[in-house]
Write a protein that binds this DNA or RNA. Structure first.
Lengths: 196, 196
DNA sequence: CGTCTATTTGAATGTACTCAAAAGCGGTGG
DNA sequence: CCACCGCTTTTGAGTACATTCAAATAGACG
C-alpha cells in the first residue's frame, strides 16, 4: 500500500493512533512524475514539502551564468523541498526535478501547519527531521572546507553508493562543486592508484 | 537581568506561562568564559547546548594536518553546540572556543529532553530553531558551490557586519575556506576596485 | 617596552577551470 | 531491432585561481 513507507518513516520518531494516521494520510497528495519532469521551478512559490515514495529527485540552484549547483539528491524515503521558501512562502531559489520516474507524497504548508495544531506530536517529528537535515548539511560544510575534491568524491561514493548509480557524473560533479571534466580526471587518477 | 535575552529569544516563537518560565530557567546553567577559553574540545562528549548571552564563540573543525575550518561564529543571542554529537552523545568533532570574554547559558541534553516532556511547546521552539539553522546552512552550501572566494567574502561582510569586526581575518578566511594570505589579496583587490 | 601573532607581500607551485574535440552511451523513432 | 541523434564522458592544451613558503611589516597583549 502506498502509505506504508511514509508511515514507517514517521513511526521511526513518533507513535500515532489509528485516528491520527487516518488524519495524516488525508492531508497527503499523491503525485507521479516522469523522468526529467520538474516539481518546482525557481521563482515559483514553493507550496509543498515532498516525501519520495519511489524514484530520485534532485534539488539544484541555477546561477545567472547558467551553472547548476546540486543541493541534494533525494531517493526513496527522503523528504525534500526548498525549505527556506517553503517555510517563508517566498519565491523559490531552487529547482527540483525528477531524475527518473518517481512517486511523491506532498504536504502543503497550510496542511502542515494544521497538522502541527491537530497532532502536536508532529512538532517533534519535524524537529527531528530538521535536526538530521541540519547536522547532515553541517557535515557537508565541514567536508567542503577541509577536504580536497578527490576526497570529497570518495566520501560521496561511500556515503551514497546507490545514489552514485542513479545519477550522472555531471550531476555528482555539480554536487561536489567541481566541473564534470575535472571529476573525470579524478576518476582516472583513482583507477591508477587502485591498480598498484 | 541575565535571563531577559534568552526569554525574549524563546518568546519569538512560543508563549510561556510564568511557571513554565521558572521551570525553564531552573534548567539553565550560567557560565562565564574568558578570551580564548575552550568550551568544548574535540573527542570530549558534547553534553550541552549553549546560548550566547554576551560575547562571541567560534566552532571549528581541526583536521589531522592541523588546518582549522570555522563552522560558525556565534554572537550574542545565538545558540551553538556540536549538534550532531550533542544529539547523539558522541565524541565531538568540533572545538568551540570563546573569541572574547563571554557569558553563556547552558542546557544539558538530559535537561533538554526533560524539557520536551514537561513543556512540549519547546518541541516547537527547537523545531523552528533547527529549521532556521538548516536553511542557513543550506544557503551557505549554495554560496560555497556557486560563488567565487571574493563574492563569498563580500557576502560575509554584508550578512555578518558586526562579526567581521569581532574576529580576525585568519578566522574569516577559515570560515570561507581559503588561506589568510589569499584573503589578504582579495581585500587588496577590492580596495583597488572601489577607488576607481 | 618587548614579544608574539596577525597581516601583507611576492615568487613559485599546484589545483581546478575553460575551451575544444573525440569517443562512448542511451534513448527514441523508424 | 537497429541506427541515429543528442547528451555525457573523456582527453588534452592552455589559463586562471588559490596555495605554499618565506620574509617583512604592522598590531595587540601582557
Amino acid at each position: 500500500m502506498k502509505y506504508d513507507l511514509i508511515l514507517a518513516n514517521v513511526a521511526k520518531h513518533i507513535t500515532l493512533t489509528s485516528d491520527e494516521i487516518r488524519y495524516f494520510i488525508s492531508l497527503l497528495n499523491f503525485r507521479e512524475v516522469t523522468r526529467n519532469e520538474c516539481l518546482l521551478e525557481a521563482e515559483e512559490t514553493c507550496s509543498v514539502i515532498n516525501y519520495v515514495h519511489a524514484g530520485v529527485l534532485r534539488a539544484y540552484y541555477l546561477d545567472k551564468q547558467g551553472k547548476e549547483s546540486t543541493i541534494m539528491f533525494a531517493t526513496a524515503d527522503w523528504w525534500v523541498t526548498d525549505m527556506y521558501c517553503f517555510l517563508n512562502q517566498k519565491p523559490a531559489m531552487m529547482h527540483i526535478e525528477a531524475i527518473e520516474r518517481s512517486c511523491i507524497l506532498q504536504l502543503t504548508k497550510e496542511r502542515l501547519d494544521q497538522l502541527f495544531v491537530e497532532v502536536p506530536k508532529f512538532e517533534r517529528f519535524f524537529r527531528i527531521l530538521m535536526q538530521n537535515a541540519y547536522t547532515r548539511e553541517q557535515l557537508r560544510t565541514i567536508q567542503t572546507l577541509s577536504l580536497s575534491a578527490e576526497a570529497r568524491y570518495t566520501n560521496f561514493l561511500k556515503k551514497y553508493p546507490q545514489v552514485a548509480q542513479q545519477v550522472t557524473q555531471r550531476q555528482i560533479a555539480s554536487y561536489l562543486g567541481i566541473t564534470p571534466e575535472f571529476l573525470s580526471t579524478i576518476r582516472k587518477n583513482k583507477q591508477k592508484g587502485s591498480i598498484s
